[in-house]
Nucleic acid binder design. Sequence first.
DNA 1: TTGTACGCGTTATCAT
DNA 2: ATGATAACGCGTACAA
Lengths: 333, 333
Amino acid sequence: MSDSTIYEVARLAGVSIATVSRALRNTGPVSAATREKVQRAVEQLKFTPSRLGVSLAEGRHAANGIVFPDLSGPYFAEVLLGYEEVAAELGRSVLILSTRDRDGVPATVKDLATRVDGLVVFGQTLSDAMLTELAESGLPTVLLARDAHPGTEAVRSENGGAAEALAVHLIAHGHRAFALAGGHDEGDVSQRWTAVARTLGLHGIPVPRPVECPYTVEGGYEAGLRLLPDNPDVVMCADDQVALGVILAAEELNLKIPGDVAVTGWDDIMAARHARPALTTVRQPLRELGGAAARVLDELIAGVEPTNTTRVLATDLVIRSSCGPHPPAQEEQ
Amino acid sequence: MSDSTIYEVARLAGVSIATVSRALRNTGPVSAATREKVQRAVEQLKFTPSRLGVSLAEGRHAANGIVFPDLSGPYFAEVLLGYEEVAAELGRSVLILSTRDRDGVPATVKDLATRVDGLVVFGQTLSDAMLTELAESGLPTVLLARDAHPGTEAVRSENGGAAEALAVHLIAHGHRAFALAGGHDEGDVSQRWTAVARTLGLHGIPVPRPVECPYTVEGGYEAGLRLLPDNPDVVMCADDQVALGVILAAEELNLKIPGDVAVTGWDDIMAARHARPALTTVRQPLRELGGAAARVLDELIAGVEPTNTTRVLATDLVIRSSCGPHPPAQEEQ
DNA sequence: TTGTACGCGTTATCAT
DNA sequence: ATGATAACGCGTACAA
């Protein structure tokens, strides 16, 4: 019920609170007999040190935060799991914050900032001004899925190389009329589209302008209805959810994939593998992304000075059947 | 950098800390002039009250915890998002804890318990002994996806009725040889299998014993390889991930779905809709589940006594094509 | 309207 | 080996 305090333990054990603290933390000499008494008192009262007391005295929270947009979906979930796993290994709790409503964000982020020793922030969730403010406040901050901002570190996965490889693969399929589904001003995706544009240019292929849409199945469906009537050979999508939406739109329009039009995604979420047809995509190491962020953040918290470095994790091109016909041996599950 | 304290604000504003506190919280009379001075000092020092100090003084964390198993996947992500959203509305932060390693769980849960005003715990993550301990400690606790334990409240979605409806539908398809994929001793799933068994019994159909497997695509794949050689008419699966695995196993064995064998899932995760064939399943209101838990927990924290009540949210049967041929109009996306 | 002083629960320093 | 006691940062009776 009412949590007992170190004072009650001390009284019951017939010692001072200093001794109790020492006995519990092995932070100084305690005679075996005394330790025994303390142990008994602790068990009898079911004493657990108050986190608030400990944190106040230690001057640290032993907790990390993570900020992400609402986009929900499997992408963030996987990263979050990887983050929590490593944070737990490092003895730190994890507080989450989803910034959905545009208005209250700064206030809630500041509240979160007072509860943690460091923060991981997803790509485009916070304004650069806010990031600067965080960095200048001295709070260790790691950025995810984008490049570093002054005063921070960053972890993202490789975009340009995989995008180029994907484009080359699609060109080898004979595709010439390209369409791009998914906005281009957000950092992560823009890096991909830039690489795609360069690759197409090198092959003398017209570079399409990306059609903006929310990164959801519904968004992809709408984008598909807009793009497909122009009879592209292939629709490259900002992520797998968008691609799944485009596939639904193609069905609606009675277009066969990949016969009439090819479609590619990005991320390799679970649904990509099970979609009809199975989706050609780029696998991001989502859990590793989260784990790496936790580790980098831990270093920052330990006192390492931020160097504005961006760590880049490798991605894999995953060729399935939505991009065009392959000899069976070449397909991958 | 070094966060400023209320004392520094008070000194800069030329008032006492009590006045600063009152001015910031509107918790007592403060003259307009004084309020103005305080505001200026606060802005100049970029003062934000320390959460530790506030919590210690207020005697509350303004934070909730949530405990879930590793199973990851879309299921937990969706529930978590719904939980965080409502918790944020109620002005509470969210701490997450994933119990993957069997050993350290009690300790980490107790640590979490000291950081929050209340806890939501997923179905089978904690032992009943642990739940009892939590309840007796007086920490407000809400159980998710299972029935209430003494001293707690619970929120789950409806199982028996939907399971019966699904079984009836499958029987109407003419299926007689049933197989069940996914363990049966866990609360949520066992309720479904019980209802299925009763329904089959009423129709004079043999009741199969569930084949246990992890609730993952891989687990379903293994279960499928074991079950499919017996030529069942239909494999009912514990959840969608298992069903997706069974579908992969069927492909491997060159069995057509639903021609050679029907398959059903549970949850209606995103991949279910996009699978080939689209998966017949039962939709759980995942986000609502999380949101409801947050609200119930808030009541408990506000002082409402736990009544060991289980709230049951409605589920929807989602008929797609994996369970057998339908007239086009009857299918649902 | 404003200020003083105590309490919240720990850790850690300094005596003893 | 053990015990007083000063932080840590804030809210709030109570006094003025």
